[in-house]
Amino acid sequence: MEKKARILMVDDEQGIRDLFKFLLEPLGYQVFTAIDGLEGVEMVKKESFDIVFLDVHMPRMRGPEALKVIKQLRPNQPVVIFSSSSDPKHIFEEEAKKLGAYTCIYKPVEIDEILKIIEEITGRESE
């Protein structure tokens, strides 16, 4: 069986981190978690991940700042911004994409959407 992707979930909400583990580990993904931007950045420095999910509002270091640092460290790192405020005019989304985010998804997201994005990114990479 092929080696399943390594996913880093950076979110200060325990419920969200647990959810990702619960959802993805049985599907064979390796799920790592960090409780804020700073910890997330530290982990990216040490290890490589196939996808990083980044919450926006977090203590110590927010998502967008963490995104900037991560992109400096690993310019090709796929990062998905996982926001809890909606963004009708897609201003935030555009900003995030300018900073190199793969896409933005909004809480509460349906799990099919999460799975679709993961498959999209990992599938794209294996091609």
């Binding site: 419920g15 405020s85 909606s86 809480k107």
Partner: peptide, 22 residues
């Protein structure tokens, strides 16, 4: 309050969807 509410809803919705699927 949207930001505060969206997080818990995401958790409740997510877990219930994962479980229902299984």
């Amino acid at each position: 309050v949207a930001h505060e509410i969206n997080n818990p809803i995401a958790v409740i919705l997510g877990f219930s969807q994962v479980l229902t699927k299984r």
